[in-house]
């Protein structure tokens, strides 16, 4: 599910203006994308709200910094996600593994089945995945990017992305309960 308030081409145009050192363009991009970037980082960081806020703000500082290197191809949104993703992966790399702690706090699957999944539980379930898998699922589920766009963005083969995505979904199912999703097509 995409929470985007801006499409790739509109983001392209804003980033090009930012490259020309137009601060009002950065403000527009920030207003349009802050929340979705925050949501992506919140999921990537396993539900750490303050960490997500911090990195979301840092993402826009880096957008300003790296905008002159940006080449517009209708991938402006994906480009911003890429910056945020790198920050998240760096932050995850600096943290000690905490998968066991997090999976302990994931609610019982029978409870989850009965109600909508809350954000904290979702983020904690995602935290049980490897950083690669988490990035793919989050970009697909939260940012609304297609698997092809994710492949282009991360520079990996589409087949690898599809395989890792399917593996991640299987893991999430076993974590959150079989009843949460069943075999079928996308």
């Amino acid at each position: 599910m995409s929470v985007s308030a801006i499409d790739g081409r509109a983001a392209d145009a804003l980033i090009l203006r930012i490259a020309q050192r137009d601060m009002s363009a950065l403000e527009s991009l920030y207003n349009a994308m802050y929340r979705e970037i925050y949501g992506y980082l919140f999921s990537m960081l396993g539900g750490d709200r303050s960490g997500a806020e911090d990195l979301a703000q840092d993402t826009f500082v880096r957008v300003w910094k790296y905008a002159p290197k940006f080449s517009p191809m209708g991938q402006g949104r994906a480009w911003v996600y890429r910056i945020a993703g790198r920050l998240a992966l760096n932050a995850l790399g600096n943290r000690s593994p905490c998968t066991e702690e997090l999976t302990d706090s994931i609610p019982d699957s029978s409870d989850v089945e009965e109600r909508a999944l809350d954000a904290q539980a979702a983020a904690q379930a995602l935290a049980a995945l490897t950083p690669d898998e988490r990035e793919i699922v989050t970009l697909h589920a939260v940012a609304g990017l297609s698997l092809r766009e994710i492949a282009e963005m991360t520079g990996r083969p589409l087949g690898t992305i599809k395989w890792k995505h399917a593996e991640a979904i299987k893991k999430l199912r076993s974590l959150l309960g079989e009843g949460f999703g069943r075999e079928g097509t996308e």
Binding site: S43, A116, L117, A122, I169, L172
Partner: peptide
Amino acid sequence: IEKKIGAAV
């Protein structure tokens, strides 16, 4: 499951 995660986030 992915849709539900997306909705929650």
